[in-house]
Design a protein around this nucleic acid. Structure first.
Lengths: 208, 208
DNA sequence: CTCCCTATTGTACCAAAGTACAATATCTTT
DNA sequence: AAAGATATTGTACTTTGGTACAATAGGGAG
């Protein structure tokens, strides 16, 4: 469980390209999984491991750019590297504006691709790490009752217990009770940590 | 002082292009300032107002991409929009990977350019706003003595005064003194706010 | 050498937060 | 109707943090 094995997904309609890519990726130590069409890839469910995606621009059916759009709608998070034989400037512009990570023109050197792949995987690793932390925080946040959530927001905003109490028109004693539960449910060891959690969760007190 | 007037900088060696761009930018309500070469622009010091930069790719002397690199070295923060007559895919790729915001191929519609410009200016406005806040915070941080800085880091990490005291091998009373000065110098109205400041400043306790 | 900044510490007190015992009321679900 | 979750509050006590009065000591600038 030190490092999860990354997977490189390749979508290209040309079997010989798939084979060639698979070979160079494998020889560089990457696990490759290939798809012959956008549809085929869309049917596939990627495992929850780091990786990146290599897309051919020109393909029958959905092309690479269209696939990119479809994936974006599904919160697909793998970095995307495009490949193209006779790519156009507008295509590359669209790709990058939609968040592509690289855009390689054939013929390209193995090294170029492998560099892009490594960069993509590293980026995805970091993303995943961050995302997992956020998942945990959001899950904890979801366990708060509406009242606790209110107290949470007001407390991290910097208000004193008595001020929060006044705001919610209840006693300070009750704030302490909620506050203690918030700390416990959020898994915060200190007020400082609770504030950091709130920051990451994008919590802003509605009043301030 | 409601809104600062943005400026659009244009660098293109072709006088007729400069004139044309100036006209369409003006008619859209933007203030334009034009330059005939990369060198000319590098000699210029942009005022501290929002704006964006429009660069021609192909120019005698330094071309647009090279200018982009030079500017990056100087922490130039204005969003860059490229224009090109016969742009190549590698050029657009390089531009985007170096942080370009858009890449327009001539002939382009006025609307395309103006949309890109508006987006760029808005982005820069947000950037500047954030940057100014950070400037203030960094300036305050710089007023802290080394000792106060240490206490700052340990306190926001979540340690109790007594723990910080133990760590620094001084008394809790002294921690309180430093802590009070940190709050005052940083302009924090609460511990919660102090933690948020530390987060933005990227302060991590070296021990934790 | 004096002034200022920095770092340190003391005492005493007050305010704020946290906790250990609780109890009561409402609402939903089973 | 009983169980469980939620929201509320009480008393009493401890711990932690903040402040108002300080004083002392070292180092650097003028």
């Amino acid at each position: 469980m030190t490092e999860e094995k990354p997977v490189v997904y390749v979508v290209d309609d040309d079997p010989s390209v798939r084979k060639a890519l698979e070979r160079s990726l494998s020889s560089a130590g990457h696990e490759a999984k290939t798809f012959a069409s956008a549809a085929e890839f869309l049917d596939f469910t990627c495992p929850d491991t780091p990786g990146c995606l290599i897309l051919d621009i020109k393909m029958p059916g959905l092309n690479g750019l269209e696939l990119q759009d479809r994936l974006a709608e599904k919160n697909f998070t793998f970095p995307i590297i495009f490949m193209t034989g006779h790519g156009t400037v507008p295509a590359s512009v669209k790709a990058f504006k939609a968040g592509a990570m690289d855009f390689l023109q054939k013929p390209f050197k193995d090294r170029e691709l492998l560099n892009a792949v490594s960069t993509g995987i590293e980026k995805h690793r970091r993303q995943r790490k961050e995302h997992k932390k956020m998942e945990i925080l959001r899950a904890r946040l979801d366990t708060l009752t509406p009242r606790e959530r209110e107290v949470f927001e007001l407390v991290v905003s910097g208000m004193l217990n008595k001020q929060v109490a006044f705001d919610l028109e209840i006693t300070e004693r009750t704030i302490k009770a909620h506050r203690a539960r918030v700390m416990e449910k959020m898994g915060a060891q200190s007020l400082q940590e609770l504030v950091r959690f709130a920051e990451r969760l994008g919590i802003r007190s509605s009043t301030a």
